[in-house]
Design a protein around this nucleic acid. Structure first.
Length: 268
DNA sequence: CGCCATGTTAGAGG
DNA sequence: TCCTCTAACATGGC
């Protein structure tokens, strides 16, 4: 799935089309993806105006004019598509749900694997509070990260993938951040010294900003248009020489996820 | 056919 | 409580 930079790119692209639009209909062909139910979401959103389109972690947040919101999670293979007033379009494969605007424009939710979710929530703040801090926000400072890491014994890689710890990192950007910080993915969080924590924070923020600047990472047909794949230094490069020291990049498993690292630049 | 995949979560067990 | 692992969700590409 899209990680933070891909979701941010999607939100920026769709915001101008959705802002101030009034919703006239909602349909879904795979009801398990819709919460609390297709009928209840339809009742909740029809007639509402879209006030804002935002991102929180990997969630797309569609704020409505009654204070409620639609939360879209693309998971592994979700994708958005847009149908304008003319209705002319190529057939979108794996279309699972659509939000119909007054005037006929449509936001399509497409998802080959059906892991994606659409949720309508009345208490938006409560729903978003389940996530950890935004890594690009001012509140994500070194002192706070040091405190957060200090009370965790987990290995750093699975901890960074935990959305309740920090929101938005996925498998690609976590490996890239740990490489930039020179930290081994299996290090225990509480063992990192203040200097290493500062490096980690800088690495996370710089790799996410670079990802956004490149419009995200495109490594298959699910998410086209990004350029960050050309700037990844370890992810998907097992066996290739480390760009910094030439040592072959290693691929190991960490928390059931494939993990890429330079054994020399990221010593255990 | 077997293995892999940018994600998350429930449940079991240490 | 905390952490780790497995299975599950469901499909497509290699």
């Amino acid at each position: 799935m899209p990680e933070l930079p891909e979701v941010e790119t999607i939100v920026r692209r769709f915001r101008p089309r959705l802002l101030r639009k009034r919703i006239a209909g909602f349909e879904a062909s795979w009801p398990r993806q819709i919460s609390p139910s297709v009928a209840r979401v339809r009742r909740a959103v029809c007639g509402r105006r879209i006030l804002e389109l935002a991102r929180r972690g990997k969630l797309i947040v569609i704020h409505l004019d009654d204070g409620s919101a639609l939360l879209l999670h693309l998971k592994m293979s979700g994708r958005l598509a847009w149908v304008d007033r003319s209705g002319v379009r190529l057939p979108e494969p794996h279309e699972r749900a659509r939000l119909i605007m007054q005037g006929g424009e449509r936001l399509l939710f497409c998802d080959a694997r059906k892991f994606g979710r659409i949720r309508h929530v009345r208490d938006v703040e409560a729903a978003l509070d389940a996530l950890g801090p935004e890594p690009l926000s001012a509140g994500f400072d070194a002192a706070r990260l040091l405190r957060m890491l200090g009370e965790r014994r987990r290995r750093i890689k699975p901890l960074l993938l935990d959305q309740a710890f920090v929101a938005g990192l996925g498998n690609i950007y976590t490996d890239e951040a740990l490489f930039r910080a020179g930290l081994h993915p299996l290090r225990r969080a509480c063992d990192l010294d203040p200097n290493e924590v500062r490096r980690l924070r800088r690495a996370i923020r710089s790799v996410l900003r670079d990802g956004i600047r490149r419009c995200g990472t495109s490594i298959d047909w699910i998410y086209p248009g990004g350029r960050m794949q050309d700037y990844l230094r370890v992810y998907g490069r097992a066996g290739e020489p480390c760009p910094r020291c030439g040592t072959p990049i290693q691929r190991i498993m960490a928390g059931q996820r494939s993990t890429h690292l330079c054994p020399r630049c990221q010593p255990p």
